[in-house]
Write a protein that binds this DNA or RNA. Structure first.
Lengths: 204, 204
DNA sequence: GACATTGGGTAGTGCCACTCTCTAGTGTTG
DNA sequence: CAACACTAGAGAGTGGCACTACCCAATGTC
């Protein structure tokens, strides 16, 4: 298929596909001449993945490229791919070295063990710092409840990883890590809405 | 305090504070002359809240203004404030009318009742659509597990709302709705990392 | 042989969150 | 009272980002 068909089937303007090709998000097609290239189903699939990461996934071009690099690198272990995906995701950017103490305490109580420099750990510390700065410091009890729920989800995520090939597992991990985040947030808001309706009926 | 002190104590450039004043994110100070205004502790608190919403909260200026409008409007019910906050939050922007069926099915199984046009419902449908487009359609079982965990969190969130004054409750709802999202996402990633380490030891 | 399309590249666009600069006025210091 | 630093308010400029429009020479199609 040519670029126009690729673009049409993915619902993306041709100029945008060219842009992704230039940025290295989508691999080049097979050149059949100086001004012709052929694209396959795998290009279409990749293009759809890119759109999902950039749109609903909320990634920037640069971060999407880093995430896709983890997908493309064969020989990476599944655990390593998860780490690469986490590193590529937008953590909560903080300037100074954040206060990791409350975050570490949660991990201790949950019995979780993670890398010393885990980006998720830094992100958690930064998020807690933001809450404190906004005058809404969370209690340890609240954090523990959140961690309980998060633990269930993380367990579920990892259990669902297919064991067929490493490549398949890596792709699954990356996609689900990124694209299930909006699902989780939407479900939380729905649960809040339901709980709020029950607790505050008729406008309290 | 003058604008320079306000800016210094919040760790924000003076020009940026002026910008927020112009955009209506921070209320004007009390004018003491044609070129002088006085700001109080409440301005400092508000400025810190704005920074938390824009930075870690990930809101745009326009969305932050809408969220803050909910905080500022007295007489709003707590349930109404939650709805206002949800409407102001960035849903997953989708073009056409998404397929709400799978999303509604989750709600039915959980026994949740939400508004027909709930933005969270649309966001969930859009997120599911993105997953399908990326070739990683989630099973109902996975969604149910996610919903179970989200249900716990939503319950917890609503239970934690202070019952003192409506204004206090509204502020709490808005802040926790927005600023606990990064906490939840970070905890999920930490749980994934721990679970992944246990399931894929030494690079599988 | 006319015409549309392609790969490849450069430059421009629109949006956003600031950031700079200017004016006119004001408090403060010596 | 004069010099000076600071202020409110507002317009214009900046840099980054994700496209998007345009151009060219080459090529495929009718």
């Amino acid at each position: 298929m040519q670029i126009s068909e690729l673009a049409r089937r993915a619902g993306v303007p041709v100029a945008t596909v060219k842009y992704y090709l230039r940025e290295g998000l989508v691999p080049a097609g097979e050149l059949t001449g100086a001004t012709r290239a052929r694209y396959g189903e795998e290009h279409l699939e990749r293009l759809r993945l890119v759109r999902a990461l950039l749109g609903p996934g909320g990634l920037s071009i640069a971060r999407a490229r880093a995430v896709l690099a983890a997908v493309d690198t064969p020989g990476t272990s599944v655990h390593g791919a998860l780490g690469a995906a986490h590193r590529a995701l937008p953590g909560v950017g903080s300037e100074g070295p954040a206060d990791l103490e409350q975050a570490r305490a949660v991990l201790r109580r949950q019995g979780w063990r993670v890398a010393e420099d885990s980006p998720a750990l830094v992100a958690l510390a930064a998020a807690l710092e933001a809450l404190r700065a906004a005058g809404a410091a969370p209690t340890d009890e609240l954090l523990d409840r959140y961690a309980d729920a998060a633990g269930r989800i993380g367990e579920q995520d990892v259990a669902a990883v297919p064991t067929g090939s490493v490549a398949e597992a890596v792709r699954f991990v990356v996609v689900s890590t990124v694209l299930l985040e909006p699902v989780l947030l939407a479900l939380r808001r729905l649960a809040q809405e339901d709980a709020s309706r029950r607790r505050f009926p008729d406008g309290c």
